[in-house]
Simulated assay, not measured.
Amino acid sequence: MARMKFICDTERCIECNGCATACKAEHDIPWGVNRRRVVTLNDGVPGERTISVACMHCSDAPCMAVCPVDCFYRTDEGVVLHDKDVCIGCGYCSYACPFGAPQFPSNGTFGLRGKMDKCTFCAGGPEDNGSQAEFEKYGRNRLAEGKLPACAEMCSTKALLAGDGDVVADIFRQRVLVRGKGAEVWGWTTAYGQPGQAAKKEGA
């Protein structure tokens, strides 16, 4: 069984926000909620990069671990979804998630939290696939239609990849080989920004 994953190629992302726009349009997402957003790293300095961020559908999802009412569940494809009928809006998942995926629409003057909303990998929710109830709560179920998430399909530079984790990893691996950067793309320099340390560690 395929395990669905996202990966964003920062060498290709041009900060067009097409992915975020496609997501909001496809699912009729309410104002103030962003299931996907584009983040700029090292803004205005050499080495600036942009990356598209949403729920990464973790294999060991921290949101699932902290939810006091167990509103989260994982599908056979490895997609982490939630049940809005069970969610109590406590916000624990938003504190636990390192990607800031869970979103809480604010209602009223004092910002009272409503039901949590997040990226569904375009896989809908617990209601019947393609039903009106599913669309109203979670948006369109593209996965049930045999399609990939709208954000990835809309990406003009194909920086955002989505699908079977093994296939996505192979595509990215081929890109790295063509660029000629080898394993150092995700190595010591990338993590700590200290050129030369990687070579020292490899020689040690």
Rank of each mutant, 00 (worst) to 15 (best):
Thr21Lys: 01
Pro126Tyr: 01
Asn42Pro: 15
Ala133Tyr: 01
Pro30Asn: 09
Glu26His: 06
Cys90Thr: 15
Thr120Val: 04
Cys16Asp: 12
Arg140Ile: 06
Val79His: 11
Glu48Tyr: 09
Met116Lys: 05
Tyr95Met: 10
Tyr95Gly: 15
Ile88Ala: 07
Ile88Val: 13
Val69Thr: 10
Gly111Lys: 04
Tyr138Val: 04
Glu136Pro: 09
Ala101Pro: 01
Tyr73Lys: 09
Glu136Thr: 14
Lys137Ala: 09
Gly139Ala: 14
Asp76Trp: 04
Arg12Tyr: 01
Glu26Leu: 00
Gly44Ile: 12
Asp76Glu: 13
Cys122Val: 10
Pro102Trp: 00
Gly125Ser: 05
Cys90Leu: 11
Glu15Thr: 13
Asn107Trp: 02
Asp60Ala: 06
Asn141Cys: 05
Ser52Pro: 14
Arg35Trp: 00
Arg113Ala: 15
Ala133Gln: 07
Gly114Phe: 00
Ala101Cys: 09
Ile51Pro: 10
His27Val: 06
Cys19Tyr: 02
Asp128Ile: 07
Phe104Asn: 05
Arg142Gln: 13
Cys67Asp: 08
Val86Ser: 05
His82Tyr: 04
Thr10Phe: 06
Arg74His: 12
Gly139Ile: 04
Lys24His: 14
Ile29Glu: 05
Gly108Asp: 13
Cys122Ser: 14
Gly89Ser: 11
Val86Glu: 04
Val66Ala: 03
Ser131Cys: 02
Val45Ile: 14
Gly78Glu: 11
Glu48Lys: 10
Met56Lys: 11
Asn141Lys: 08
Gly114Arg: 03
Cys55Tyr: 10
Val80Thr: 11
Ala123Gln: 12
Thr21Gln: 08
Pro30Gly: 08
Gln132His: 02
Trp31Pro: 09
Cys90Gln: 11
Asp9Leu: 03
Val39Ser: 12
Cys93Asp: 13
Glu15Leu: 01
Val53Tyr: 00
Gln103Trp: 05
Thr10Ser: 09
Tyr73Ser: 07
Arg37His: 09
Pro30Ile: 05
Pro102Gln: 05
Ser59Phe: 00
Pro68Tyr: 01
Val79Trp: 12
Ser106Ile: 02
Tyr138Gly: 09
Ala20Arg: 10
Val39Glu: 13
Thr10Ile: 07
Cys19Gly: 07
Thr120Leu: 04
Gly125Glu: 00
Thr50Arg: 09
Asn17Pro: 14
Asp60Cys: 03
Asp76Lys: 08
Thr109Arg: 09
Asp70Ala: 10
Cys19Leu: 05
Ala61Ile: 12
Glu15Gly: 05
Leu81Gln: 05
Asn34His: 11
Ser59Leu: 02
Asp85Ile: 03
Val66Cys: 07
Glu48Gln: 15
Val79Thr: 15
Trp31Lys: 06
Arg113Phe: 00
Glu77Gln: 11
Cys19Lys: 04
Ser59Met: 03
Cys55His: 15
Arg49Ala: 01
Pro102Asp: 01
Arg35Cys: 01
Gly125Phe: 00
Lys84Asn: 00
Cys122Gly: 15
Arg113Glu: 08
Cys67Thr: 10
Phe135Asn: 05
Phe121Gln: 10
Asp9Thr: 11
Asp128Gln: 07
Ala61Leu: 08
Thr109Gln: 08
Tyr73Leu: 05
Asp43Cys: 03
Cys71Arg: 10
Arg113Leu: 03
Glu134Gly: 02
Cys58Arg: 12
Ile51Phe: 08
Ala25Asn: 15
Pro62His: 06
Arg37Asn: 07
Pro102Lys: 06
Val39Cys: 08
Asp85Met: 02
